[in-house]
Design a binder for these strands. Structure first.
Lengths: 167, 167
DNA sequence: CGCATATAGTTATAGTTGTTAACTAGATGG
DNA sequence: CCATCTAGTTAACAACTATAACTATATGCG
């Protein structure tokens, strides 16, 4: 059902002739949340194209990098670092494990928890992907100079991790 | 099924003792896409809290602002401006129409298309929400100075709309 | 005119993600 | 030994996005 007859007394009016195609001139242009969202989608699109051949999604890449940096990290801590919910980690690691990129190792002391490690194959792939990811970032932000790119990064970190940002 | 026995010859090892809780020191810290995603989530969280009382989601807010700026815009053009697919517009406008915030007006010349307008109620609400949104943005980015915030905004626009950015 | 093609909006569908509640196995502390 | 806690898991579900296909109008051309 399409509800088209409503209260407000607006007469038959023609749609805009201008045919706008951007948010130029609108309040949206000054909305940080909106700009962040659009920029993120732009960068992710490039990233996904670059990773397509490897069938690696953003969250998988992030996991690989964190595991590489903290070999033996538990799933709970991985969830904390990436700020995602524990249930998401399960299928994430399952995929990596099925592909032979990572593996769970049951902890001797606390048999509830698993340390996660990269396989040799996983390590090699992660190296490759890190390079690809950097190239993708640069390509997606070609309108920025290297200095601007660094500036942007530093501003973003200040937002999502104000405690760890430089200082 | 949990596949835990894999090829790579890794022995029983203890998980990290460090218990990391951030991405500090990792390559992720230098990944623009990751930083954008995390920052966006941070800002959206604040936004959603601010809008909770009004039951307005980000895409609805964006729509309201664009319709306010281009009264009578067609659904197709709204989709282009927001860079979303036409089918999403339908339920978006349905919701706004059901709540009496916006309305479709069939175009006389081209009976296929609808111009979208805000009702008086919709206009009033949009005014309110724009203020709330700005406050929310500022609150979400308290670690940034006003200058930094403007810098950030300008860098983001350069990424997602390099053609319209200043110049 | 009448037909082929194109467009605006819509519907339905399905894939993907994120969220929540509840369960199991093991740990911890009285 | 029992109550309580924690790590990981499972399952159910809500939300979002993308795709294909349908309708009604519109347009252009022989």
């Amino acid at each position: 059902m399409t509800i088209s007859k409503k209260s407000a007394p607006v007469h038959q009016v023609e749609p805009e002739e201008k045919e706008p195609t951007s948010v130029a001139g609108l309040v949206l242009e000054n909305r940080l949340g909106y700009a962040l969202r659009r920029a993120q989608l732009t960068v992710f699109k490039h990233f996904n194209e670059a990773m397509q051949a490897y069938e690696i999604r953003p969250a998988q890449f992030s996991s690989l990098v964190v595991i590489e940096g903290y070999p033996g990290i538990t799933q709970t801590n991985l969830a904390k670092v990436l700020d995602i919910d524990p249930p998401r980690i399960v299928s994430l690691i399952n995929h990596l494990e099925e592909r032979g990129l990572a593996l769970r190792v049951r902890c001797k002391r606390d048999k509830r928890s698993h340390g996660i490690f990269l396989s040799k194959k996983g390590e090699a792939l992660t190296q490759q992907l890190k390079e690809l990811a950097e190239q993708s970032d640069i390509q997606a932000t070609q309108s920025l100079s290297e200095i601007e790119r660094r500036q942007l990064l530093s501003l973003l970190v200040k937002i999502y991790a104000p405690d760890t940002a430089d200082e």
